[in-house]
Nucleic acid binder design. Structure first.
Lengths: 149, 149
DNA sequence: ATTGGTGCAAATCCTTTGCAATAGC
DNA sequence: GCTATTGCAAAGGATTTGCACCAAT
């Protein structure tokens, strides 16, 4: 992997890895770039597919390991949307998710709103929270419209 | 299955099934009773284990089908806690869940708190919500204590 | 008598593991 | 050179499917 690729594409990642004494590999750089390029959340399989062009021969265990590493590093979120596979999300700012029961698409819901008070209630019970993930289910605007007409 | 079992154990279930033209089977009655007896949420496998005494020969596909039916009927909630298996919860009143990253136990968090405003925000975007499930992750009181000392 | 439910076995899907080869440090 | 990472193949675990039999209506 060339030095300039690292400098252009994955500055924070390189720093984080160095700080932990972990290695900077092309798989890690390319997978992070792909994750960030997407607007929508992706499954490990989708990332593998997308990355195949730049990194032929990449394997699915590597994709899983890399995505889990990113979650640990705070570079990604793992979303359990209740569709078969886990989704990985390059957005790390506070936002939640809406899953359409009909078309299966997943939408972002920006902002924190009242989530804080639930987490506070959790902490009042002695639980030390370090993450909260809300999944709202229902029908997306498109599917709701189609159903009425 | 005897008539009185149905009357004692599963009144609402019987009515719901009749209304939909579905059959009242001993599996459905026993699995619902078991789900309601538990305080903690159970996996399909745990329900199967617990039900084996009253219903020898019950199969895991039946347990899954029955639990999914209950979710559809509003008699149970399915919780995707991010531990391998799905959990089924006989409590249907509003409450959320806390998952301990260390011991893996799952705790109830009662009340609605601010969840409503997030769901309202979802609806403002055109999404028609019919369910919301929050999973808070972190360390439970016991594990947090053990770690400090 | 009909046909919806069930049990069984096997398939499928997602994710993880073991191990030899490779590449980053 | 040392050892973390990788790729491969295979295992593992959860859930679903296909189909013949049974039991509720």
């Amino acid at each position: 992997m060339s030095a300039d690729t690292a400098q252009i594409e994955g500055l924070d990642l390189v720093e984080l890895l160095r700080a932990r004494g972990q290695r900077v590999t092309s798989q890690r750089l390319v997978i992070l770039r792909e994750l960030r390029r997407r607007r929508l959340h992706a499954t490990a399989e989708e990332i593998l597919e997308a990355v195949r062009h730049d990194l032929p021969g990449t394997s699915i265990p590597t994709v899983y390991a890399t995505l889990e590493l990113f979650v640990e590093l705070g570079l990604a979120r793992k979303i359990d949307a209740g569709i078969g596979a886990a989704l990985y999300d390059g957005r790390t700012d506070p936002h939640q998710h809406m899953v359409c029961r009909e078309c299966g698409r997943i939408f972002d819901l920006d902002g924190e709103y009242g989530l804080g008070s639930l987490v506070e209630a959790a902490e009042r019970s002695g639980f030390v929270a370090d993450g909260a993930e809300l999944v709202i289910r229902g029908r997306c605007a498109d599917c709701a419209r189609a159903r009425v007409s």
